[in-house]
């Protein structure tokens, strides 16, 4: 199968991975900055302590790993690679769901909306595009 027969859906998934990866990068960067400048921020506005208190090192590590995985698996989708695309894409979705559970407090409608993309990715990779990862 040549690159021209790559399904459009796989390209869309890759672009969405890059998009969410970029958003993830911004979120992780802002969390690192907030943690690094904790004292100054709280000194300026004591109400910020509640928000900064919720930021943990674990969530930052989780977020960084997720961001990298999103971008790498996006490249894997485009190159139709079995390990880099299919396997890593599945792993990314599972880690993403874990990240949502770790960082959101309680189950609500917004947190369930965050589950949409990883669940959709899992379904698409394992039902629609399973046979399209033709490169090792």
């Amino acid at each position: 199968m040549s690159e021209s027969t790559r399904p459009g859906g796989l390209i869309a998934l890759a672009i969405l991975n890059f998009l969410f990866g970029a958003i993830g990068f911004l979120v992780v960067s802002s969390r690192v900055l907030s943690l690094a400048m904790k004292e100054q921020v709280i000194a300026q506005d004591p109400r910020m302590e509640v928000i900064i208190h919720d930021i943990t090192v674990t969530s930052i590590i989780f977020g960084t790993v997720l961001t990298v995985l999103l971008i790498v698996s996006g490249v894997g989708y485009l190159k139709q690679k079995r390990k880099l695309g299919y396997l890593l894409g599945n792993l990314t979705s599972v880690i993403w769901m874990g990240y949502i559970i770790l960082t959101t407090s309680g189950f609500n409608i917004m947190s369930s909306a965050l589950f949409l993309f990883p669940v959709l990715t899992l379904m698409m990779l394992n039902v629609m595009f399973k046979e399209d990862f033709i490169n090792p």
Binding site: P7, G8, G9, I11, A12, L13, I15, L16, N108, I109, M110, S112, A113, L116, F117, L120, M124, M128, F129
Partner: peptide, 23 residues
């Protein structure tokens, strides 16, 4: 439609919009 980019974007956009409105 599900294999095409437009289909996936439509599905995701519709579901996310519905969830955001609901929220």
């Amino acid at each position: 439609s599900l294999r095409s980019g437009g289909g996936i974007v439509f599905l995701l956009m519709t579901l996310v919009s519905a969830m955001v409105i609901a929220s």
